[in-house]
Structure formats: C-alpha cells, structure tokens
Design a protein around this nucleic acid. Sequence first.
DNA 1: CGCTACTATTGGTTGAACCAGCCGTCTCTG
DNA 2: CAGAGACGGCTGGTTCAACCAATAGTAGCG
Lengths: 282, 282
Amino acid sequence: MAQDIVAEDIMDAQPPISSNIAATIFRDLRRQILSGELTNGERLPGERELAAKYGTNRNTLREAVRKLEQSRLVTVRHGQGVTVSDFRKTGTMELLPPFLENASDPSEVALILEDVLPARLLVIEFAARSAARRAHRADLERMRDITDLLISAFDKRDPVVIAHGFHRWLEALIDAGHSVAIRWIANPFLEAYRDLIDRVPGLWVLEPSFPEHLRKFIAALETGDEERAIEVTREYYHRVDAAVMRTLKLILAQRPASSPPGLRKQAEATANGDAEPPDRPE
Amino acid sequence: MAQDIVAEDIMDAQPPISSNIAATIFRDLRRQILSGELTNGERLPGERELAAKYGTNRNTLREAVRKLEQSRLVTVRHGQGVTVSDFRKTGTMELLPPFLENASDPSEVALILEDVLPARLLVIEFAARSAARRAHRADLERMRDITDLLISAFDKRDPVVIAHGFHRWLEALIDAGHSVAIRWIANPFLEAYRDLIDRVPGLWVLEPSFPEHLRKFIAALETGDEERAIEVTREYYHRVDAAVMRTLKLILAQRPASSPPGLRKQAEATANGDAEPPDRPE
DNA sequence: CGCTACTATTGGTTGAACCAGCCGTCTCTG
DNA sequence: CAGAGACGGCTGGTTCAACCAATAGTAGCG
C-alpha cells in the first residue's frame, strides 16, 4: 500500500456508515428524493405502509422520516401525511455530499459544483483573513507542521496522504481563525470535501504549484500580512478550480449517467421552477 | 396596529412553534446545551430516566434526542449513552438562531455576530454577482416590485413591514441568482435574519440611505453591471453593520445577562479550548 | 344549496418487552 | 499476586400493539 506510518497518522478516524436500520432507511429515501425518483410535492405512503415495505415497525420507520424532515427533504403534517419538499429551494449546504452522491443528472452536479467552488474560495479567504489577524503562536506552529508534511507528501506524489492532509490543513486554518462563525460556515464544505476525497479520488487535482502556494501562504500568515495571504490564495485557487472543473467534466463525460434512464424527471428544472429563457431585458 | 393590507401581504406565513412533545423537549435540551448548563463532554441521563423526568415515554424522548444528534449537539453511542458535543466546533450555521436565543453570555453573542455580519455580506455579494449575470426578466421585475414596496414602507417608517419586506427582497435576490449552491448557503442566514426580526426588533437598523441603496442596486442589476452592484452593496453594508454592532452592544449593555448567574460555565472558552494569550510570534 | 356531523386516514403518543453493545467487576487460573 | 475471562448491569436499538389527535372528504340534515 502507498500509505505508510505518515498516512495512518494523518488520516482522521472516520466511523463507518452507521448500521442502524433507521439510518439505512433514511439514506434510501434520501437517495430517492435527491435522485428525483420522488419529486417535489409528491406524497409518501403512510408510516404504517412504509414500515411494512421496509420490513420494520412504525417507530423505527418514523425515526427515518424524522431525519428526512430535519434534512428539509420532506414536510410532515399531522393528519396529512408526508410530502416531499423542494430541496433545491429549502436545503442547506449539508445536502451537498449526499446530493453529489445521489444526483441522477451529472450536468446538474457540474453546475452546482461550479457555483460551490468560488463559494468555497470565499470561505477560505474569510478564514485566512481571520487567521492572519487572530492566530496564536501554537496555531501557526501547527499549520507549519502540516504544511511541511504536505510538501513532503507532495514530493512523494502520494495523493491519498495529500488529500487527507489538506483536509487537516484546512481544519488548522479554520481553528487559527478563532471564530465560531467561520467554523460553522466552513463545516459543511469540509464535510463535502472529505466525502469527495473518498468517492471521487480522481477529482483531486495535484497542481504543480501546490507546495509553493503553501509556503507563500504560511509566510504571509506568519507575518500577519492579511492582504498577501488573500492574494496568494485567490491566485492559486483560480487555477486549481479551473483544473477541477476540467477534470470533473472529463469524469462526467466518461460515465454520462450513473442511473437508469427515465429517472431524471426534474433534471432540467431550475431552483425556481420557471422555464423562461435567460434572455436579458435592456 | 401598524400593519395594514400591505403588511399582511408582505409577511410570509410563519407556522407557530411546533407543539409536539418531542420538539418541546428537544428545544429544552438544546437550550440547556447552548446556554452552557450542559457542557461539552458531559453525559446525559439515560433515555429511561430522561423520559421519566420529562413525564413522557422512551419513544417520544428518543425522538428529541435524535434531533439533538442531527443538530450535532450530542453524540449517541450504543451502550455508552448520550454525550454533549462541542457545538462550537462541530456545529453549522443552522445553530445560529437557537444560539442567539439561548446563549448565556451576551459578549459571546456579540463576538459571533461580529463575525457573521461580514460573512453575510459575502453571501449577499455572491448572490448579487450571480443575479447580475443570470437574472431573468421576471426576476428583475419581481425585485423592482419589492424594492418599490420597501421604499414606500420606508417613507412610512414602518419597521415591521420593512424588515419582513427586506427578507422577501433577499429571497428574490437569491432566486435571481439561479444557483442552488447560493440558496443552500444563504438559507441559514435568511433563517437567522427572520428569527432576529421577531426576537430583537430593536436591532433592525434603519439606515437613512436605505432607499437610495436599493435604487442604486436594482439599477446596477438591471444593466448587468456586476462590479457596480458589488460596490454599492459593500459600501452600504459596511455602514449598516457598524450601526448594527453599535445597537447590539447597547442592547446587551441594557440587559447584561438574561440567565441567572452561575450558569455560564464555559462562557469564556474559545472554540478551540485553548486559553493561550493572543500574542503574535515574529 | 349550504352547513354540520361523521368517518376514514394520517401522524402523535404511550407502555412494555426484548435485543445488542459496552464496561466494570468478580472470579478463576496460572 | 497478576492476568485472563465470564458475568451482570448499565446503555441505546428494535419491536409490538394499542390508543390519541388532527385533517380531509363525505354523507346526511336543515
């Protein structure tokens, strides 16, 4: 295997997918919704019926439905049943990982990712700004350690270690910002990134300038040069994101649809549900 | 009352707080965690005991615990019980509204809000950028309608209508961006804003330049002038946010602590748990 | 024709019982 | 006496069966 002691050390322990019955049913229903098998406004069978369908009892089934509800995928109303929500409108970034996994329309995935990448850049810039202002000595030392580790992993061309190490690097950056707000904003992105590492390893782009970027960035941080840190980050990610989108489109082209045809009922529906052409007024 | 037909029309129907037993217990436990009555790492009583304490049965109690778990406030492990998580580290923006409501330490609320405001600005800028590029004709018409309504409400000095109308304005802006990613990022902010409107009406700052800002912004959007829209937005919010923070500090000074003393065990704990002074290396 | 009362259906709540994972303890063994 | 293993008592996980409560559609009444 390509991962030695260092790799073991840098990979955070990730609990295996929960084996709960309720969690399993939840994931299955979520998949059906995110893939478009169940569409916005559709009504789910009653709890008794669903429980029978999944070969379990009502209480356990209810747990799954509750999870769906809190993920904003369905609306539950006493006496009326469970209806599928328009998750494109009511969802949050926490839906990103499961959506990337379950979406039936690859082009929509690309579309969303194309919007997420610049947003992610903004989050990183925001964290960098905060870190440049508030980082303690210990924070900087930790970041420097991880940076060194990352650079040596890069020299060895070990993608797995690099990807997980970079996740840790981002964690350290956010910690250094000493901002609860940034943490809360960044967490869904970190989670999505982590999911993507394992699911689409090919998407991880090894930019040749990666080590150089890290060195420049940590140097800017250590001198507290906020603007320099932002500048370095922006310059680097514009290049990486372009490469990521190229790679993504290649991957999607190779497997045009991971689901059987006929299941993409609302693939082309926009977030607002209108089908008007995007011509501008003027 | 100060709200006429227009006010009725502009206020979105907001379902009253759920009367579910499970939801009530959930909110109570959440309050205890967010206020610091239950601290990170602490173990909750067993489900049987808790159920008895709340005068309900285990199934209903479990529902409440599940909600806590999905809100990342607790960790549940089979055979080991339920332990309180470090929500400052593991939470997401969805915790913002309940945290603002339940936090025991006003200064921490101010601290977080001080970081959230610029983040909110970034989100608005991001949405504005996207709207300037992708807005349909119908989107712009809708935004113009709401803008007119807002300006007339401003002339009448009707804070309630303005606040709710502005919420609708933000919704329209985000819709105009035609980006699922932006929606997902913005939703927690919108929710927090909505909560704040009703909870702390005094916080809503009526900047004199509000109508002028709206007019400038919509004009920029209609000509598709992305940079101009950003510039206008940034300039306006820098002023508003400063005013908001001033107002917030006034409000907090008036009621230094909304909870009995002795309950703020971890008020001064940072997100990382280290107490090192913020001196810089160099 | 319009209102009311009923009823079927749906989710909400309850209580009890049993299964399954975890941990400290107690005992047996070397 | 020290270590390994069995046991018992926690904990959450699952199941069942019944009843309460909100909703909507329908049948019946005025």
